[in-house]
Design a protein around this nucleic acid. Structure first.
Length: 571
RNA sequence: UGGGGCGUCGUCUAAUGGUAGGACAGCGGCCUUUGGAGCCGUUCGUGGAGGUUCGAAUCCUCCCGCCCCAGCCA
């Protein structure tokens, strides 16, 4: 149940109102037992970045107070749920670094007791069987401004209600024919209190209970009661459920439950340049805008895992962003910061050339190989060093040479001397072009006195370039990712302008480069492992990668001052 | 429009009647064998109007704005 987390980085800092609430309760002696929270997903889709907030919050609060956090599937709607999602959700929560221990539950485990409480409500005259069809019911519900009218079936006797409800369970009626409803107040200004449906008839096989049930409890009934059964003390949920709290309380107050949970709501988290609703994400998959739920451009947890985002970055992101009652939209760079921060600490450095330009070292004989020692991670001395081979023909990044360099361009140019990272200083002596004028090769000389990269005479160079040895490098495919959408808030723009969401997709969200070269130490890089390609960014080995056919995904770029300069001058 | 929730730098978030602080982003600089990392500096904010008070982001009144609710979804 304890998360691998840094306790010096508490969730939301001292201002987290949920922590203050719990501390206050404990100070007031309101808890005799442990603090118990829960994360309650419905297994009808994949978890995304928006879910990481309640996951982190629930597990972290339980940990901070020495309690426990349950993982409970709210599987009360067999029409939309599936084991496929159960398995994926389990894997995602585990990946995020949280452990529910023995406390894995399903609302469907509680169906029998829930049913018993429904009969209890009938016995108390607090629930009735309603014969209104799904078409008719809205006619009685009123509207935002007008009160509803009581169902004509509202005053049935307890005996008749009980008989009908038992026959509903026995499968005597067709789906939609009848419902069990709470008897509360059809005139309530709170819509959810207007005799809400508690049970409906569904004849579909449930992924866990099979065909045992013909009636299924609604969320508003199953959720508070499941919390009570499990001894949940703090039912933390997002703000759209604020209106449901009176019904939550009504339910636990009127059923003979073993404990008294309380619901507390916090604001939802959104991110710029993406969408975060299951419906929209599903559309992106189904319409082929992405290759699947784990396409690295998606905001799903499985996708960012594939992209190379470490789980600690997600936990820290949520801790740092904090928690209030308001819905928030975080700017994407804030997430990228958390990702870089974590990867900077942990990712081994390596050299890779994504857009190769051939360089011939004229004063180094063919067939000669020099070995240079490279630091694996300057942030982590314990990561050690490795050897990188150097020879007459190299590749450097095409962007790292300009025949006619502008001011503030520090990289290679005719006649200029730069350092090749970990290797030596080289000077550009010539440029070879093809018939169309495209540069095909650079001629350089190296200074053997600068082995390792420093000049004994103390002369400085303006920049350091990454490189690979052409004869030793390994070919690789590299997938470069940008935001899926071109605009900060695609949903809002689509609605405001009446344009389809798809028109805001970023055509450059994925660019595949197949002629990249990586240093030989990467030969056996395993899927999932993360590296910093020096000067370029962080890259993770894709699950599709194989020895001999390496595939890397760009997780996030490095901060790039030169790119920023260029962007600014382009405006 | 009935009910509910929420308004502090561009974006998040502290300050719980007593100097409006921090992070990310931005800008400027230092440093650098990654134009990375790190370090230093800096611009920018209490939705509005009244009121209470020696003193208001905080308390009161009114106004304005944004979000949620009319599934037999969760």
């Amino acid at each position: 149940m304890s998360a691998p987390s840094d306790a010096s980085r508490p969730y939301g800092g001292p201002g987290n109102f949920v922590r203050e609430l719990i501390e206050g309760e404990i100070a007031a002696g309101k808890h005799s037992g442990p603090v118990v929270t829960r994360f309650p997903p419905e297994p009808n889709g994949y978890l995304h970045l928006g879910h990481a907030r309640p996951i982190t919050l629930n597990f972290e609060m339980a940990r901070e107070f020495g309690g426990r956090c349950h993982l409970r599937f709210d599987d009360t709607n067999p029409l939309s749920e599936d084991v496929e999602y159960v398995d994926a959700i389990l894997a995602d929560v585990r990946w995020l670094g949280f452990d529910w221990g023995e406390h894995l539950y399903f609302a469907s485990d509680h169906f029998e007791r829930l049913y018993g409480w429904a009969e209890e409500l009938i016995g108390k005259g607090l629930a009735f069987v309603c014969d209104l069809s799904s078409d008719e019911m809205p006619l009685y519900q009123g509207s935002l401004n007008e009160p509803g009218r009581p169902s004509p079936y509202r005053d049935r006797s307890r005996e008749e209600n009980l008989d009908l409800f038992r026959r509903m369970r026995a499968g005597e009626f067709e789906p939609g024919a009848r419902t069990l409803r709470a008897k509360i107040d059809m005139a309530s200004p709170v819509l959810v209190l207007r005799d809400p449906v508690l049970y409906r008839i569904v004849k579909a096989s449930h992924h866990r209970t099979g065909d045992r049930w013909c009636v299924y409890p609604m969320y508003d009934f199953a959720h508070p009661l499941s919390d009570a059964i499990e001894g949940v003390t703090h039912s933390l949920c997002s703000s759209e459920f604020v209106d449901h709290r009176p019904l939550y309380d009504w339910t636990v107050e009127n059923c003979s439950v073993p404990s008294r949970p309380r619901q507390t709501e916090f604001g939802r988290l959104n991110l710029t340049y993406t969408v975060m609703s299951k419906r929209l994400l599903k559309r992106l998959v189904e319409e082929g805008h992405v290759r699947g739920w784990d396409d690295p451009r998606m905001p799903t947890l499985s996708a960012i895992r594939r992209r190379g985002v470490p789980p600690a970055a997600i936990r820290n992101f949520n801790r740092d962003v904090g928690l209030t009652k308001r819905d928030i939209t975080i700017e994407l760079p804030r997430l990228e910061h958390a990702v870089r921060e974590e990867l900077n600490r942990t990712a081994p450095r390596v050299m890779a050339v994504l857009n190769p330009l051939r360089v011939v070292i004229e004063n180094l004989p063919e067939g000669e190989r020099l070995d240079f020692e490279a630091v694996n991670n300057p942030e982590d001395p314990g990561a050690g060093t490795r050897t990188v081979p150097f020879s007459r023909v190299l590749y450097i990044e095409r962007d790292d040479f300009l025949e006619d360099p502008p001011k503030k361009y520090f990289r290679l140019a005719p006649g200029r001397e730069v350092r090749l990272r970990y290797a030596c200083l080289v000077t550009c002596t010539g440029v070879v072009k093809d018939a169309s004028g495209k540069i095909t090769e650079l001629r350089c000389t190296w200074d053997p006195a600068t082995r390792g990269g420093n000049a004994p005479d103390g002369r400085k160079v303006a920049s350091t370039l990454h490189w690979v040895s052409a004869t030793h490098a390994i070919p690789a495919e590299v997938r470069l990712y940008e935001t899926l959408f071109r605009v900060e808030d695609p949903m809002a723009e689509a609605e405001a302008k009446g344009i389809d969401l798809a028109s805001f997709l970023n055509p450059n969200s994925e660019r595949v480069r197949r002629e990249c070269w990586v240093e030989p130490s990467l030969r056996d890089a395993q899927p999932g492992s993360a590296f910093q390609f020096e000067r370029l960014g962080y890259f993770a080995v894709d699950p599709e990668s194989k020895p001999g056919a390496l595939v890397f995904n760009r997780t996030v770029t490095l901060r790039d001052e030169w790119a920023k300069l260029q962007k600014r001058s382009a405006k």
